[in-house]
């Protein structure tokens, strides 16, 4: 498996603005029996996305025509709270998302996302509100996430920089594999063990 890479993306977005969307909503636990990462995109937001008879819920955003081809999710505050399941970013990436924009992410979800090339874009509530307003006027609003500049922009909005761990950013820009990076410290880790034995 090669390390994920990301430089820049301009894409349409979908809006799911509820606060505190937890990972049990992103991917319910009953789908965590997989032993690989395949097929999770189909189960993304399963209990909101499908009706009891298994048919798509027409009221849910991902089932509306405007969601087709979208690659950015505009989410509410504290997105990804709850469990540590990496199946949550796997499911989002499996569906086709490459970035999520929110005023705040839960810590474990944020870390897991970065390891899968899903960019957690943190913007201030005022900018978030401006994005929602622009998107409400134009369902095809193209949003640009530029990882090199660590900025997000849309028509009529100058690039807004977003905070991102510089190490994760460099890994994603260059396709650096974190496990490979960690393995370089084997000598120091063995010395640490010897000191603490």
């Amino acid at each position: 498996m090669s390390a994920p890479k990301f430089t820049t993306l301009t894409a349409r977005c979908v809006v799911l603005s509820n606060n505190d969307v937890d990972t049990d909503q992103i991917i319910p636990a009953r789908f965590l029996k997989v032993t690989d990462k395949l097929g999770l995109g189909e189960k993304l937001f399963c209990d909101w996305r499908y009706l009891d008879d298994g048919s798509p819920n027409p009221a849910f955003i991902l089932n509306q025509p405007e969601a087709k081809g979208a690659q950015i999710l505009v989410a509410g505050n504290n997105f990804g709270c709850g469990s540590s399941r990496e199946h949550a970013p796997w499911a989002l990436v499996g569906w086709g998302f490459q970035a999520v924009i929110s005023p705040m992410f839960a810590d474990i979800f944020k870390g897991n996302s970065l390891k899968n090339g899903l960019i957690p874009v943190v913007i201030q509530p005022a900018a978030h509100a401006a994005l929602l307003a622009a998107r409400a006027k134009n369902h095809d609003l193209p949003v640009t996430v530029d990882l090199r500049a660590a900025s997000v922009a849309w028509p009529g909005q100058d690039p807004i920089s977003f905070p991102i761990d510089p190490f994760s950013r460099a890994c994603l820009l260059d396709g650096v594999d974190e496990l490979g990076y960690l393995q370089k410290f084997a000598g120091q880790a063995r010395a640490y063990e010897a000191r603490h034995a």
């Binding site: 469990s83 399941r85 990496e86 474990i108 870390g111 496990l179 960690l182 393995q183």
Partner: peptide, 22 residues
């Protein structure tokens, strides 16, 4: 603290983890 599956792999292989201080 809880970690994701990628990090489970990191710890299995290296007994170490990349972490920012909270």
């Amino acid at each position: 603290f809880g970690i994701g599956t990628s990090e489970v792999g990191h710890v299995l292989a290296t007994q170490c983890l990349l972490q920012r201080k909270a």
